[in-house]
């Protein structure tokens, strides 16, 4: 069953993860020794300006927060695929064409995901978000598919990067049930744009075998998909949300 409101364990140093590239000053806050080290070493560091939008909707804390985070991303995807149907590109597709089937399926899957999260979150759900797709030309195949790929790849990286924050096994499994479907979508959209690009170095740390060995596991890289933490994901997602609908995830930083 869902565990929607699990309180955070009390642990003074169990602060959330610092994403790679976090400003130095912020990084120190994550460390138990932060205060003391800052006093000793901060002199001379660049002062980073915080980009604060005071009007952000926060997804909340605990598993409810992660589910709301997923709900926000799924709302965005569902709205995107719904909007595609109003554009000349989709309207020009043959009734039995592969691309029409693909886009119809993606619209249904993402709507199912969004509605599912809305239902399980019930009274704890964030409100319906207003997308801003003004940068996307829905009449143009390339614009639609480029953005579809971006949304799908972002979704996979987001679920992968959120897994460590999930507290209940049931919710982890739910996220796992959805992320692999998002990965299937991402791979097919990439193949649509460029055949055989289902895995590439922008999303996966590709493995290159050692030229002197045919043994498995010998080479550089890992074959692992790259995760993205909520801050990084939302910086991108918020570009497609109107002011007042943009999200933050302050307890998962």
């Amino acid at each position: 069953m869902m565990t929607n409101s699990v309180s955070q364990p009390t642990n003074l140093v169990a602060t959330p993860a610092a994403p790679a590239g976090v400003p130095r000053r912020d990084f120190l806050r994550y460390t138990g020794a932060g205060a003391a080290l800052a006093g000793l070493f901060l002199a001379g560091c660049d002062d980073d300006t915080d980009n604060v939008d005071t009007n952000l909707l926060d997804v909340g804390t605990g598993d409810t927060g992660i589910l709301n985070y997923a709900y926000g991303l799924e709302q965005l995807e569902a709205a995107f695929y719904a909007q595609i149907k109003n554009g000349a590109y989709y309207k020009g597709l043959g009734a039995s064409s592969a691309e029409k089937q693909i886009l119809d399926d993606l619209a249904l899957h993402e709507q199912a995901h969004a509605d599912f999260f809305k239902g399980v979150l019930a009274g704890n759900a964030i409100r319906a978000l207003e997308p801003d797709f003004s940068k996307i030309n829905f009449d143009d195949r390339s614009s639609v598919l480029t953005n579809a790929q971006a949304f799908e790849d972002l979704g996979v990286a987001a679920y992968n990067g959120a897994g460590r924050f999930i507290q209940s096994a049931a919710n982890l499994t739910l996220a796992g049930k959805i992320v692999s479907v998002e990965a299937r979508h991402a791979a097919l959209i990439r193949d649509l744009r460029q055949y055989n690009s289902f895995v590439a170095s922008d999303v996966v740390d590709v493995f290159t075998p050692s030229p002197t060995s045919t043994m498995p596991g010998v080479g550089t890289g890992t074959g692992k998909e790259r995760s993205k933490r909520p801050q990084e994901v939302l910086a991108t997602a918020n570009q497609f949300l109107k002011a007042g609908s943009r999200l933050s995830a302050t307890s998962f930083s």
Partner: peptide
């Protein structure tokens, strides 16, 4: 998880 999603990409292809 980072391996799981790559396997799903393989399956799709």
């Amino acid at each position: 998880l980072n391996i799981h999603s790559v396997e799903a990409r393989h399956s799709s292809h």
